[in-house]
């Protein structure tokens, strides 16, 4: 099953199991079912609980927060994650802050889904990976879809936490199959919010990457193993922030070289935060500083040959690890 279909089924399951769940977004209703078809069939099945909205990203995130405060649960789809900037106030100053600023815990069960990333030729304002701008906001969780994680479980976990979340979904990943078991070279294991992908136990190289990078990370891992004879373990967290590395402590304990890859642009990044966290934990055991792989400090051009230069490629990951 492809990731897009899995997400669609997960939303069906979520709404079927919990009548308090409402979904809002631009063009999410049938027959269109959303720009990436992730919400297909939901409005036919759940009627007024699914609402196609005006082009008002800030407004609909606010409405979602209002529903959440009043006792419902809300999933808001923003058509392209680039437009999440229009909802920054509602996310940072209202939804996230409301969990704490009234002096007591206030639950805000709100998920803002964000189709994200480049490699589809959509140009500078429809291709970005803005995860880093949401890292470190008190009261806001940052998730990213991966082909290993059950989205329905993640959605349920987010709602149960009462902490609002932005949920990034790589637009190329939509077209890829969900993964389990292994690929012939590596085994895929999912544990406590992490996917562990490895060819052997206790590798000296460990790569951490969000779910959207999985296809490129796996391609790099295969080349490293087959061509360069380097076994590298890939760790994919479902929740990017706050990041809890406890479930993969054993994998990290064996590491001598750690690499972090992400699709966001260089500087002030998620990866830098991961490196800070891991340096504290692994200092003294590593034989080199943590390597960081990201897009360059650049906008994302439209033409395919230019876009390829400004997005992370498998070769970039392989080169960083095999240096």
């Amino acid at each position: 099953m492809r990731v897009a279909e899995h997400l669609n089924r997960s939303l069906h399951l979520l709404m079927e199991n919990d009548p308090s769940v409402h979904l809002l977004g631009e063009d999410v209703s049938d027959p269109y079912g959303g720009a990436f078809k992730i919400t297909k069939g939901l409005s036919d099945r759940f009627g007024p609980r699914v609402m196609s909205t005006p082009l008002s990203e800030g407004g609909i995130v606010g409405v979602g927060a209002g529903l959440a405060l009043a006792g419902d649960r809300a999933v808001v789809e923003i058509m392209f994650s680039d437009f999440a900037t229009l909802a920054f106030d509602q996310l940072v100053n209202f939804a996230a802050k409301s969990t704490a600023m009234y002096g007591r815990r206030v639950d805000v069960p709100l998920i803002v889904r964000l189709p994200t990333g480049g490699r589809r030729g959509y140009g500078p304002t429809h291709s970005q990976s803005l995860q880093k701008h949401f890292i470190g906001v008190p009261g806001l969780s940052v998730y990213e879809m991966s082909p290993f994680h059950d989205a329905a479980r993640l959605f349920t976990e987010i709602f149960a936490s009462g902490t609002p979340a932005v949920f990034f979904e790589d637009k190329v990943l939509y077209t890829k199959p969900m993964l389990s078991g292994g690929d012939g070279l590596h085994t895929f294991e999912v544990r406590d919010g992490w996917a562990v992908i490895r060819a052997e136990q206790d590798t000296e190289d460990v790569l951490l990457a969000p779910g959207g990078l999985t296809d490129r990370a796996l391609a790099a891992l295969r080349d490293l193993l087959v061509e360069d004879e380097i076994a590298c373990t890939l760790l994919v967290p479902a929740r990017l922030h706050p990041l809890d590395v406890t479930p993969v402590a054993d994998v990290l304990a064996a590491a001598r070289r750690v690499h972090v890859a992400e699709d966001g642009t260089a500087s002030g990044t998620w990866g830098a935060e991961v490196a800070r966290l891991l340096h504290e934990r692994l200092w003294g055991r590593l034989t080199a500083p943590i390597t960081h792989i990201s897009a360059p400090d650049s906008i994302i051009p439209t033409a395919a040959h230019l876009e390829a230069r400004c997005t992370v490629q498998p070769a970039d990951i392989r080169r960083a690890i095999n240096t």
Binding site: G62, G64, G66, A70
Partner: peptide
């Protein structure tokens, strides 16, 4: 105001 719309919808 958008939050109030959400609450009003409920």
């Amino acid at each position: 105001l958008p939050v109030a719309v959400g609450v009003a919808l409920r």
